[in-house]
């Protein structure tokens, strides 16, 4: 398939996986936390010359309580809606000190990105601030106890969308929103596909301007899965097309980096307690929605960018 790039078939990158660990082991995450794995992989590539900006989210806790922290790079904790704006300020100050080579990375949850932080993120993206913005997406407000966000999948259970009234409407397409800003790079990442993950982090690190990395992030307490099933659940998310892996250059050039196997979404849904109330009709509806979205993505992948 033309829209799918070749590198997903490559096995070379795994050898390139950096041995170094920037993040320490003494973090406070739940077992099986996808957000922690995302940070660990990200920092392996980004290295120590990095400043991390973290708004209110699970990572506020995971990083550790004063006077300890686990990251191994300077961390600025900041208010919920300010990851992108605070990172813009950090970038400006470091540039004035001649530290243009320092990575400024915002690391926010889906609530801080899709919802309360979207305005500041749009502002930073429109200004094309030279930052990497990562959204680790566990698909609800997990730190406050599993409330729905606009990243929550359709018909999922959360504590504010109980089984009798599950989440209405589809998950917000954050990549489309970022792509519409025309930023140099936006991509979806999945730590269950480490080669693909690392390659995208490297691509982002090699560029300037606003780079947006959307990371699926399994949450055992929120998804109602066993902590040993995190990687499997994340892998299933991509293979079932619920979380396809692709990248967008300059807001127009789409690259699908992994061809989803097309595993029936019911297999992905049935392993998670948050979907256990779904009827066969619900599952069928979700399958059709995902099939449509995958087709839409394929079309985007085949469309040549406008060239004057």
């Amino acid at each position: 398939m033309k829209a799918v790039s070749e590198f997903s078939k490559s096995k070379r990158l795994i050898k390139d996986f950096k041995e170094r660990e920037i993040m320490g082991p003494g973090h406070l995450a739940c077992q099986g936390c996808g957000a922690t794995l995302n940070m660990r992989y990200l920092l392996k590539e980004a290295g120590p010359n990095t400043v991390m900006v973290i708004p209110a989210c699970c990572w506020t806790i995971i990083d550790g309580q004063f006077p300890f922290n686990t990251l191994g790079v300077p961390v600025m904790h900041t208010a919920f809606e300010t990851a992108a704006s605070a990172a813009s300020g950090v970038r400006a100050a470091l540039d004035r000190q001649g530290k243009e080579d320092t990575n400024v990375i915002a690391f926010a949850g889906d609530g801080g990105t899709f919802d309360i932080g979207l305005q500041a993120l749009s502002g930073a993206a429109e200004r094309n601030e030279n930052i990497i913005y990562c959204c680790y997406d566990n698909e609800a407000y997990m730190n406050t106890g599993i409330q729905r966000s606009s990243a929550t999948p359709e018909l999922a259970w959360t504590t504010t969308t109980p089984e009798g009234h599950p989440k209405q409407g589809k998950k917000k397409d954050i990549i489309q929103i970022l792509a519409a800003h025309g930023i140099p790079y936006a991509a979806t990442l999945n730590a269950a596909f480490p080669e693909d993950f690392l390659k995208k982090v490297r691509t982002a690190l090699s560029m300037k301007g606003t780079r947006f990395l959307h990371m699926i992030s399994a949450c055992p307490p929120g998804w109602k899965i066993d902590s040993s099933m995190s990687i499997k659940a994340m892998r299933m998310a991509t293979e079932s097309k619920a979380f396809p892996l692709y990248e967008v250059y300059d807001g127009v050039k789409y690259h699908i980096t992994h061809e989803s196997k097309g595993t029936p979404v019911k297999d992905y849904l049935k392993m998670q307690g948050r979907f256990r109330h779904l009827t066969a009709e619900n599952v069928d509806f979700i399958q059709r929605r995902l099939d449509y979205q995958w087709e839409q993505l394929l079309h985007r992948g085949q469309l040549e960018p406008f060239n004057g």
Partner: peptide, 21 residues
């Protein structure tokens, strides 16, 4: 930095001041 709100203006100042500016 020509921000999109006063909230972001203060957030930018906080980020920049935290980095020493």
């Amino acid at each position: 930095i020509k921000v999109e709100s006063e909230h972001s203006a203060m957030a930018c100042c906080i980020g920049a001041a935290q980095a020493g500016a």
